[in-house]
């Protein structure tokens, strides 16, 4: 997947990663990797759409952005995603369209209403924070094979059991790229969704904390955290994501992912 495409559907992935299908937990306990795999249903989804509100918080200041997002996995293996900003007013209508063809060729288009036309954008940008928020690609779209996972223990909360899974980058290069040396994930044992995750630096100090809330069952056995808060413990900043109107496998057509659609008034 291209980097741009990764970014466009980044926040849909957020949903996918942290929404989870209730697995039939058998008599045998799962391994750390299996627990994490179970919570990732991206590959089983053909299309998605959602509304999202992003609040970037710095001290007592808040920057708000609202957008609608669509994504589709084509039958031929292509991937399409579209993102349109609905607020604030000065960026309303701005849009980003990404199509990754089955042969790996990638098309990225942007539309800025103030310019009145769409432009193709070629980028090999390699990461960092997303839209000035406290989320990075790596926070969300971790490649499971880049880490060694280990189920540390099963914690007993008031009325639920929680898997505590540790993920450690498999080598120094990956550690350098992802910018942390250890990730702890707390996952609801029964419903399979992520409760929180903690990111640690080389020196053992926690640098980021992700907490989820407003858990809703979006389809039978599929649970979604409707609210995520990522705190950067080094800078003191945080970003809140609030999801609404999530639809999965609603039958989006490839015709929806066109330049015309990108520049269509909202």
């Amino acid at each position: 997947m291209s980097n741009i495409n990764k970014k466009v559907i980044l926040f849909l992935i957020v949903v996918c990663v942290f929404l989870a299908i209730t697995g039939s937990v058998g008599a045998e306990e799962l391994t750390g990797k299996e627990i994490l795999e179970r919570s990732r249903i991206l590959d089983t989804v053909s299309d998605m759409e959602a509304e999202m509100e992003m609040n970037i918080i710095r001290g007592d200041r808040i920057r708000n952005r609202e957008l609608i997002m669509f994504s589709l996995r084509g039958d031929d293996g292509s991937e399409m995603s579209l993102m349109r900003f609905t607020a604030p007013s000065d960026v309303q209508g701005s849009g980003f369209l990404t199509i990754t063809h089955s042969d790996g060729q990638e098309e990225n288009w942007i539309y800025l209403p103030a310019l009145g036309r769409e432009r193709r954008i070629i980028s090999d940008e390699r990461g960092g924070s997303f839209m000035g928020s406290d989320f990075t690609i790596e926070d969300i779209s971790q490649t499971l094979t880049d880490y060694e996972h280990r189920l540390i223990e099963i914690l007993q909360d008031a009325d639920r059991e929680i898997y505590l899974v540790e993920s450690i980058p498999i080598n120094e290069e990956i550690k350098g790229q992802v910018g942390f040396s250890r990730l702890l994930s707390y996952i609801d044992k029964e419903k399979g969704y992520l409760i929180k995750s903690e990111t640690y630096a080389d020196n053992g100090e926690m640098i980021k904390l992700l907490e989820t809330g407003s858990i809703v069952e979006i389809l039978e056995g599929i649970y979604l955290p409707g609210r995520l808060v990522m705190k950067d413990l080094e800078t003191g900043g945080s970003t809140e994501l609030i999801y609404g109107d999530i639809k999965i496998n609603s039958g989006l057509s490839p015709d929806y992912f066109t330049r015309r659609q990108l520049s269509r008034p909202l």
Binding site: D90, V91, E125, M131
Partner: peptide
């Protein structure tokens, strides 16, 4: 001259992964 265009450029810059605005 357009305020909105400037805001949209900044959004595009951030979206495309541009860093260091802060």
């Amino acid at each position: 001259d357009d305020d909105n265009l400037i805001s949209q450029y900044l959004l595009m810059y951030e979206f495309a992964g541009g860093e260091g605005l802060d």
